[in-house]
């Protein structure tokens, strides 16, 4: 296949094909510009002073390059009553993110493993229920969950928000890992059984080490979803653990005085930095994971 493909690209292009290519690249270029434009505006605005912002030339480059807005967004912007910037929210988000991502992925892997290898009685029904769960709009769960947490006394705490993220991540994580595991040979599992390995031993010694590529996909999905979450954080995390997204909203939506657009822009870029980094970094790992033959024996 790859040979045939490279053969077609190596061949000199005909006149028609050249124009076809030009058209495609022009189209892609315009699309990319269209999507990058807001980012451009945000970046240039964040490096301007308020005086410059007031001029209203949103596409112009900053006359005097200044990182004051970034510093302010990070350390002293007002989120409601307190004026400590986004750093608090960042810390909170990390506190929420790490356990939520790790636990939801572990749980998804475990579910997928049990469903595809141990053939529990009624496994298919269980799986169907889980899938169905992922189609129910999660607003439906919010009120019952609030009641539940209130009864158990963990409402508005870190455990509450982490558990919530784990629950909402479970269907997709399970689906992801189950599909990946159903592609692994069953004989591998049988060999391990004969070698005397039990449920946990097989999971931790054999299955989990083979899951690196899919785990990276899972990390990308979960980090993005959990970092970008606003509603669940607002409802369940409680005053002391409000995630970055909620604080960003507070900064941007403060109604007193003049809107500090440069600070708002800087704060927004700061908030989206984590998912961006994850995409950039893990993309490479992902390819590496597949190429290193982790998938095929």
């Amino acid at each position: 296949m790859s040979q045939a493909k490279s053969a077609t690209t190596k061949r000199p292009l005909t006149y028609h094909e050249v124009w076809g290519r030009v058209g495609i690249y022009a189209f892609l270029g315009v699309l990319a510009l269209f999507f990058l434009l807001p980012l451009y505006v945000m970046l240039v605005t964040s490096f301007k002073s308020m005086d410059e912002v007031r001029l209203g030339l949103i596409f112009s480059l900053p006359q005097q390059f200044s990182i004051d807005a970034w510093v302010k967004a990070w350390t002293s912007a007002c989120t409601g009553l307190e004026c400590t910037g986004l750093q608090v929210g960042f810390g909170n988000s990390v506190k929420i993110l790490v356990p939520s991502v790790v636990l939801s992925i572990l749980l998804g892997a475990l579910n997928g493993y049990a469903l595809s290898f141990w053939k529990v009685r009624g496994a298919n029904v269980l799986f169907a229920c889980l899938l169905l769960g992922s189609f129910v709009p999660y607003q439906v769960f919010i009120y019952p969950l609030v009641r539940f947490y209130a009864k158990t006394g963990i409402y508005g705490s870190l455990p509450a928000i982490v558990i919530t993220h784990i629950i909402f991540g479970m269907p997709v994580m399970t689906l992801l890992f189950r599909n990946y595991y159903s592609g692994l040979p069953l004989e591998l599992f049988k060999a391990a059984r004969i070698d005397g390995a039990g449920f946990w031993k097989i999971f931790f010694s054999i299955i989990l080490p083979m899951s690196v590529p899919i785990a990276i996909v899972a990390v990308i999905m979960q980090v993005t979803a959990i970092w970008n979450d606003f509603l669940l954080g607002l409802v369940f995390a409680g005053r002391d653990n409000l995630p970055m997204t909620v604080q960003l909203n507070n900064i941007v939506n403060t109604t007193t005085g003049e809107r500090a657009y440069n600070v708002n822009m800087a704060a927004t870029v700061l908030t989206s930095l984590v998912p961006l980094t994850v995409y950039l970094v893990s993309g490479r790992w992902f390819v590496r994971g597949i190429a290193s033959g982790a998938v095929k024996g």
């Binding site: 591998l188 054999i206 982790a294 024996g297």
Partner: peptide, 18 residues
């Protein structure tokens, strides 16, 4: 299986890849 005193060789080798 582990208590039966058997060794088994599979068609797909089934070696632990990691």
């Amino acid at each position: 299986p582990k208590d039966r005193g058997i060794g088994m060789v599979f068609q797909s080798y089934a070696l632990y890849p990691t």
